[in-house]
Design a binder for these strands. Structure first.
Lengths: 214, 214
DNA sequence: AATATTAAGTTAAAAATTTCACTTGAATAC
DNA sequence: GTATTCAAGTGAAATTTTTAACTTAATATT
């Protein structure tokens, strides 16, 4: 595999799309080979973009033929690191937290929410998808023992920083943050903000612009 | 307000962040004026980016002084179209759908989920956050009657296209799609894919890369 | 009142990303 | 066997986006 430098962020965001599409091709359609044009077409991405994205990591296709679906899926899975399951802790057993724990398609993407925590006594002890909700007091212990690297934050914005700090102290290296707030963490910790409210605004922006020009 | 052309998508994604930050400043801190440096600092965005983003829409600050927080919030809200509430229908009363209906911070961003639908008979009639779940059969009727423009899809991937088509036929103009699949809709319909599984992969990518260089 | 400082707005440069045009290689048709 | 078509890989061009440098305006300081 080539050096992983100077690779556009946008490329890394597209790779999971390729990966899931390839998975669909493997599972539902029994095609052996797919072209960049076909793969891109299914995702609304130009074929040349598909080829360029893949070219950052190596040569996966055969000229004049296309890509072997099974092989490419395996390769992209390896590139992304989703060829193994990454255990994760989730803090915040509210509606969103519960939804994520029950979300079935994460497993395919390498995510396994192994432990759920909350500070609310009324929630501790309940089970979500067969995972018991534990007190945040034992977060550190579990993260250390099981050497968990991934943390998911689904607490309200006010509590998010505290949870993040606890996670980092426990040894978490990457945080998926659903709280609508910025987290301050050491440089070597990766944070991905999944800001739901932001997503809707771009739609509203378009709607309100549409109305204006009507 | 200036022409809304050639404005980077990234800018439109940052405006909601400014908006929420300004809202916090208005509500919790009683500062009257904020500089681009301060505003950007709170969000991890360079001051020059903040100024450039705003400059696409007009002049909102005073040189040597900064931006009036209340005024700028109002201006950005107007730009985004979140100065009014946009009623929306949500289809798919599963875990994620329920989580979104209960998500309190949407209102600030102009989204009001007014109706919830599902095709599952066991779900119809239940209430989520005081909103009764209705049969998808009456989706079209309600969307037409109330002239609703916004649709949220939280059904499984297999059902998403069908729901999207129904929405479009009913008169929906913008779709917020949580199903991990591409939707085929007419050109004038805006779709925003909120692909949860994609978000986690960029974290896993970084983690697996980190391990490799250790 | 003149000067220094602060900070928005803007133009130009730099960087990043996408698209294009081309080359190479494989399969098929003639 | 040669020609044609298909499609990956790639370097360069075009585009987009960000960053930097500069100009202008407001306030505070001496």
């Amino acid at each position: 595999m080539k050096e992983r430098q100077n690779i556009p962020k946008a490329t890394i965001e597209r790779l999971p799309l390729y990966y899931r599409c390839l998975d669909k091709l493997v599972t539902f359609e029994e095609v052996e080979v797919v072209s960049s044009k076909d793969l891109g077409g299914r995702l609304g991405i130009p074929s040349t973009q598909v080829r360029k994205d893949l070219s950052y990591y190596g040569e996966f296709g055969r000229r004049g033929v296309g890509y072997n679906v099974v092989e490419l899926k395996k390769s992209v899975g390896k590139i992304l690191g989703v060829d193994k399951l990454w255990p994760a802790v989730l803090v915040g057993a509210g509606n969103l937290g519960r939804a994520l724990v029950n979300y079935s398609s994460f497993e395919m993407m390498g995510l396994e929410i192994s432990h759920v925590f909350d500070s609310d006594l009324s929630k501790i002890g309940n089970s979500i998808n067969n995972i018991p909700v534990k007190s945040t007091k034992i977060l550190e212990k579990i993260v250390e023992e099981e050497e968990i690297k991934l943390g998911v934050i689904t607490v309200p914005a006010e509590a998010a920083q505290e949870v993040a700090t606890e996670m980092v102290e426990a040894g978490i290296k990457a945080i998926w943050n659903f709280a609508p707030t910025r987290l301050y963490v050491p440089e070597d910790i990766v944070v991905k903000n999944e800001d739901l409210a932001v997503g809707i605004v771009s739609l509203i922006y378009h709607l309100s612009w549409q109305e204006e020009i009507e």
